[in-house]
Amino acid sequence: MITFTNTSKRYPGGFEALNNISFNLAAGEMAFLTGHSGAGKSTLLKLIALIERCSNGQVLVNGKNLARISRRGIPYHRRNVGVIFQDHRLLFDRTVFDNVALPLVIAGNSRQEIHKRVRAALDKVGLLEKEKLYPITLSGGEQQRVGIARAVVNKPPLLLADEPTGNLDPELSREIMAIFEEFQRVGVSVLIASHDISLIQSLPYRVLQLDHGRLINDIGGRL
């Protein structure tokens, strides 16, 4: 699903965020991306979502070379990559339903289709009864689940999460992870950036460890 080949990212000014990274994440695989702050976790996710472009090497997502995707093609690429952010990035002037529906509206689905899929997605994250509320009235964990519902509502084959449990207590974090595991079970590839070592170690998934932009460890991958 994701293949990095000798990929580097150097920002203007010379800071090297990623240095010669190579790894492969299979379709349907779930993995954690870990490392200290500034190790390059976010940059790596940004390369996959085409928020940034790599300076050297190659990134393949779903068999497509991202260097070949033009500016105009970026939105269509992003529709196949569900991204979950630490700060949720919800629209606070719209209801939970409208927030989750946004990717489907963008893709031009019909009303009935949108209604069906949004309710299915909200059901999966356990927020079906809160669809009419505004995000501001929800707790942090609930907001994160709205973000997850939005990321999966158009059934992307790949999910990226950047510190999805960053602001949550251990119990809520467990719940969030359980939701990711559910998606992984139905064949979605999941890559989660996190520095919550105890949470990562409690789960049986592959761990990619970054340090100052280098991939220093690739352990697990039992699935």
Binding site: P75, R78, L90, L91, P103
Partner: peptide
Amino acid sequence: IIKLIGGTD
């Protein structure tokens, strides 16, 4: 946000 989730220009 809309750009992030695949909204075209």
